[in-house]
Design a protein around this nucleic acid. Structure first.
Length: 123
DNA sequence: ATTCTTACA
DNA sequence: TGTAAGCA
């Protein structure tokens, strides 16, 4: 199952998508990064690119933080499992640009769906 | 339009 | 944390 791990460590998610998937604000994403709780990839224009791995990590961070843990503590717990991101060069047919586009569309759809299901029209 | 960094509250 | 300004 090398493919799976490879793909989940592919950094293809934009801040916008990451916000919706994690429920965290852009401010928090950057703030956490300053504490090295997450280490998103950078692409053209110094744009942050998160991987599904980062999403899960952020979700856990959010959970720990909610448990009253400090970011320093969270780093102590998750820091050890921080592994270098794959740069998507050995992926196969699709290019990282292609993958990024596909993932973004899918994730964005998911985000919009959640948006329509949550707030209103819940009757 | 969207994100990035820096800085103030 | 949120928000504003100036830039890419």
């Amino acid at each position: 199952m090398r493919e799976k791990e490879l793909r989940q460590s592919l950094a293809v998610l934009t801040v916008s998508s990451t916000m919706k998937l994690t429920g965290l604000s852009a401010r928090q994403l950057r703030y956490y990064e300053s504490f090295e709780l997450v280490k998103p990839q950078r692409s053209t224009g110094n744009q942050r690119l998160y991987s599904l791995n980062d999403i899960n990590r952020l979700l856990e961070i959010k959970d720990y933080l909610d448990s009253g843990m400090t970011m320093k503590e969270v780093r102590r717990v998750l820091g050890a499992s921080i592994k270098p991101e794959v740069t998507a060069t050995t992926t196969s047919a699709i290019t990282d640009t292609q993958a990024r586009k596909i993932f973004q569309e899918d994730m964005l759809r998911a985000g919009q769906w959640l948006d329509n299901q949550g707030p209103n029209s819940l009757g």
